[in-house]
Design a protein around this nucleic acid. Sequence first.
DNA 1: GGAACTTACGCCGAAGAACGGAGAAAGTAG
DNA 2: CTACTTTCTCCGTTCTTCGGCGTAAGTTCC
Lengths: 413, 413
Amino acid sequence: MGNAPGSLESLRRTNRLRVLQTVQSRGAASRADIVRLTGLSRTTVSSLVAELVSESLLVERPDQQPPPASPNGGRPATLLTLDPGAGGFLGMHFGHDGLRVAVADLSCTVLDEEQRTMDVEEHVGDAFGHACEMAARLLGRLDLAVSRVVGLGVAVSAPVRHDSGAIASPSPLKGWDDVNVAEELDRRLGLPVYVGNDANLGAVAEWMFGAGRGVDDFVYVMLSDGIGSGIMLNGRLHLGATGTAGELGHVVVSPYGFVCRCGNRGCLETVAGGRALTAALSQVTGPNTTLDDVLRLARAGDPGARRAVQDAGRAVGRALSGLCTMLNPRLIIVGGRTGAAGEPLLDGIRASLAREVSPPVNGSVGIVPGSLGERAEVLGAIALAHRMTPAAALTGRAGGSAAGTGTAGGRVI
Amino acid sequence: MGNAPGSLESLRRTNRLRVLQTVQSRGAASRADIVRLTGLSRTTVSSLVAELVSESLLVERPDQQPPPASPNGGRPATLLTLDPGAGGFLGMHFGHDGLRVAVADLSCTVLDEEQRTMDVEEHVGDAFGHACEMAARLLGRLDLAVSRVVGLGVAVSAPVRHDSGAIASPSPLKGWDDVNVAEELDRRLGLPVYVGNDANLGAVAEWMFGAGRGVDDFVYVMLSDGIGSGIMLNGRLHLGATGTAGELGHVVVSPYGFVCRCGNRGCLETVAGGRALTAALSQVTGPNTTLDDVLRLARAGDPGARRAVQDAGRAVGRALSGLCTMLNPRLIIVGGRTGAAGEPLLDGIRASLAREVSPPVNGSVGIVPGSLGERAEVLGAIALAHRMTPAAALTGRAGGSAAGTGTAGGRVI
DNA sequence: GGAACTTACGCCGAAGAACGGAGAAAGTAG
DNA sequence: CTACTTTCTCCGTTCTTCGGCGTAAGTTCC
């Protein structure tokens, strides 16, 4: 068979893929654009495009906007785009207090999304049911058959085991211990499913769509009730030996502090997690204060709330300082609900880093807020499906994504 | 030109390289072996091998050992090896108290090496001069012309700037601030020079030849007078945004401890560096104790020395704990002179990690001593030259590695 | 409105690369 | 000496990319 890398057929497959990726990354491109971007010859591109069009992976868009209308005349290019009917990606996010579903086309442009608040922890089965309903509704609105969806990405607010794809136990999502999300959703939808941790996928999302575009080494910090992070190195997500890298919430910052649910003492989460923030303010605001209350107060300028947020930032900075010294990242992106608190938080982080990281390294790392807000995780789930899919499903098209796909579809990023 | 990836010529170049790498990794291989290992067809391999032999990159070794002598007869294979005369790599290491030079053939087998103790810091120029002399002597013994050396790797016990390749300033090597090692050695030898930090190259060496073989995510910790580390992630060395990643010695472990030369306070180096170890024992052993004295005592079983070493290990473990939680590496390799202290040191590290890293993550990381000892850095330098070279020098052979090579040869790994 | 120009695109034959079949080479087993 | 096995090379076929040339479809200038 000609599957071996190094064969002629594999060369053509590679070039097909490069054409597809070029179109995908630009949204729309003419054959001439593709020539310029790939370095392939006009005639090769022409032939590859013809093939792809005949397989209805690409479509011509004669109507489309005039591409800047070439400087001094010439025949206008006919733009090509991915065939919207050729398929799409689904993304889901299961968080502590709700779920979110989104649909994107093959070029990862989000077409529609839905959000729903519910108690995800109590009723695992219901959560899956609702997510599937929402997905079906979205696909219906877009007139896209389920069988055309080439992949489903799922973000879960819990560590995902590298080997099995199951949720680690004990999990921060109560009731989700050892649940195999990939198998479950594959069974219900018959799609290849890819599961990832929410902080990791937030990092991927910021890298593809947000504040991390064009940056290949950064750390995405997700501050909400829990604290997690995603580490992007050399343009790849770093998962670690067992797939649980990035557990920023369990970096020790206070060796004789509170005992943490992980069994250690003084983890960052006990100092800067949601519970710590509300506890810090509880003498002022009462025992039933929620994290969102604290954040609302801080945004409104309440000095106590701002102080609490800033102190949390300081602790986060201490937890990050060793990592910055060791990894020397270009950027730290701060997201999550607490992350939206903005300047007081970022100032706290910057202050700690300035104290504990050597000046040249500290000077080379930027601290910025994430730009995707609460949507980061779903978008990351879609990006995950996108990154796991292309080679197999867009080029080979061997069998059917229709029947079964086996259970083995599930893999972490 | 046919340089573009995706062209036919590039395909052939790729396949040539695969053939070369196959021979290289096995030391010797027949054409039939190459067929089995690469998946290319017999006839393609035959043609590629003929080409490579005619360029005297490969040689036939009809004499060579009988390859297990095929199970039931058949024409015996003629083995191929890299042509020993085709070239080689040079490696150099400039440490605080001496330098080391080694020569390897194209398959990275070390053929010969020399070591010399001297004050590298005082006389920078002399250090270069001696290194070049040693290199010339080694090449002479092996009857290898300088013009056949395809690359020179250099390990320096100081941070190397990512952009310029110059030594960072202030540098732990006195007198080396802003020295551009690559330019200097290129000028003297007319070779492509690649410069790297010693801890980083130690990591590369352990990965290629030592305790890190087959492991793609590990941290190499180098404990000597100074403390550094090299971080191998996904089979690539992680350098960071400005090329100074891995500065383990400047991770803060004691916020109100001694001020460090980097300007911060309580860096690991102030607690576990050579000076800290000797100071800890100075009341017992006198003011002129050296690091090697302490290590000798510890090896001999002196309780005080062992205690000091173990405490240093504890501090190292604290500095590493956050990194382990965040990166979840598979392995930590401990090298350097203090690293040779063995169990008391490793026990200290393990104790701290057990305290500060969550059990599942802690359980998945191994702590082992390096297996290359004082040779790690030179070997890493050779590995660096090897990794930076192949595609250009072994396949293209366009111009001359003879004249000039310009100054642009110098690049970090 | 028409000529000149520019750019985009497709067809054709050429050059190059890998592959499969047939056959020669070089051993072992009986 | 014969049968057998494995290695390796030569030849013709197939596949892919590439450059040249011709055509299509606009803009600019007069």
